[in-house]
Every structure is written in structure tokens, then in C-alpha cells.
Amino acid sequence: MNNLILEVNDVAVSFGGVRAVNGATLDVEVGSVTSVIGPNGAGKTTLFNLISGAIRPDSGTILFEGLEIQNLFPHKIADRGIIRTFQGAKVIKRLSVLDNLMLGGQNNPGDSLVNFFNPKARKAYEVQCHDRAMELLQQIGLERFAHEYAGILSGGQRKLLDLARALMANPILLLLDEPFAGINPTLVEKLLEVLHALRTKHNLTFLLIEHNLETVMNISDRVIVMAEGRVIADGKPNSIYENQAVIDAYLGTRKAFK
């Protein structure tokens, strides 16, 4: 019927009386790169938490591939193919870099205790998962850290690891929370390269959060602007420049366009 992979309809949630997301409505097309931008406190990360199931909306619906997901547990949503990264990149510090990646393996028979008695199935999967993880580590250039604790990685390296781990989980829709913030430009290039390769190879759909419009201008098919928990503008990157509501939301500082 349509090619919308994600539909967020009039979703609202509040914490202790403060409306963090206040009737947000948006959608994402299959195979697109959509960016959500907005000033701090606009509700961007809360929106991600809602989509990934980390919090439940007070009202409204979220549809993924046409099915409601707003009341599912986070792991069920991940099972459906929505995988997220975290603002500032979350790694499991006391697991090795390799183990962090292998954590992303889906339908791992070894995750079930019953299969403790089925070592063959477990080991076969582990080998396969290990190889895949090493391959990804090479791609992001972290293979020399494979057996180190992830806690020793730098901020930028953690972002790469977080992204690679999300890819391990075979996502259909990838939610990236400020993937470029605080990373040096060469690393941003690298990230963009990885993302571009993915997009062409696996036909992934991306939903990104960014603080600045500038960063996502060139890679986004579409930009959604949020402010005070609502969507205030939605369109092609170029059209956002002229939108008066957007300029107002940024308090006329034009910070987003610098």
C-alpha cells in the first residue's frame, strides 16, 4: 500500500508533568536516510526511546512495517529489526571489544540455556558470529583492540563500536543517535563511508538524530525538525533553510545553518 517503514502518529509522553514529546507525528520511507534535528530539549532522544521501546508513550501509536509496536518490550522491537545506537555511544566497558560486537548476534542458540547441552549448535554459531565480528572490526579499523576491554576505547572508537554492534544485529531500520557529535572530521568521513556502503549494499533505512542541520545536509533524503516535543517542519534538506518556524525555534540565532 505504501512504502513507509515507520509511522509515528501523535505520540506523547511526559515525565513528572513535563511533556517531553507532545504529539509528534512523522514517518520514514523504506531505504531512505531521514534526519531528525532540533535544539536541545526538543525531544529527539525521547522520540528514539519511544520508537525503540525504552519508554512507552502515554498516547499515540507507532507502526513498524504496518504493525503497532508502541507497547512492545525493547527486545521485541529489536527482534523486529529496529536497532539503535546511543547518544555518546554505549559500550559494555567490561566486555572485550569482540564480545561487545558478538553481543549483537541475533537468534544465537547459545543465548538459550537449553542449548548448553547442545554444544555443536552453539559452537557453530559462535564461529560464524566471531568471523562476522572480526570482519566488521576490520572495516572500522579496530581489529587490534579485539581482545581489549571496550572501556579503554576513546569516544570516537566507542561510536564506531556502537555502530558496528548495531550492524551485527542485522537491522532493517537503524536509529543513530548523534553519530557524528564529538568525533573528529576524519572519523566522520570514515563513518559516512561505512554508512554509505551499507546503504547501497543492504538497502538499510536510517533514522538519524543530529543537533546541527549542517552535518546531515549532504547525506539526508529528508529532514524532520523538532522543537518542544513537536515536529515543526518536514521536508527536503534545502526546503528546511527557508522555513520560518525552524528559524524561530533556533531563536533566530541561525545556529543550525552556520
Partner: peptide
Amino acid sequence: EDDEVPAALGK
């Protein structure tokens, strides 16, 4: 260490 990461990976 963390609830959110494993949950976000389907665990």
C-alpha cells in the same frame, strides 16, 4: 553493566 544495550540488541 547496562540494561539498555542488551535490550536494544534484542536480548
